[in-house]
Amino acid sequence: MESAGGLTRPVPQVSALTRPFWEGCRRGVLLVQRCCSCSGHVFAPQDFCRSCQSPDLEWVESSGEGELVTYTTIWRPQTPAFEVPYVVAVVALTEGYEMLTNLVDAEPGEIRVGAKVQVVFRDVAPDVTLPCFTVVSA
């Protein structure tokens, strides 16, 4: 996805630890680490559980459903690669973890703290798919 200026959006610099997450996005699946010891979910990916420190983590599929914790509509872009306005948001997934994302396809009137949201996948580069979220109508 290129802007008028020809700049491309920054794409994730993937590591061995985070590769499964991004490969899941390519397939349209939102993955998250789950602790085999305490069943807690861990995001962003790390080498051990944030609750019980067990190194025994597995990748599982997330519901992709959650709630809007907070958001901001951006009018001054990070770089010209981003078309304004765009919405940066924090969502809390039903599994109990939070992630930063972009809220897409939402009417300004729908965007409010506490709104129900659902993951939608967007291709931003030939090999890169991002897990964005959209507001689920009541």
Binding site: R9, P12, Q13, I74, F82, V88, L100, T101, N102, L130
Partner: peptide, 16 residues
């Protein structure tokens, strides 16, 4: 990698 791709920068970080 879980921040930059969303077009976040300092004003957005603090606005949230």
């Amino acid at each position: 990698e879980f921040v930059e791709c969303w077009g976040l920068m300092t004003p957005a970080e603090f606005a949230l």
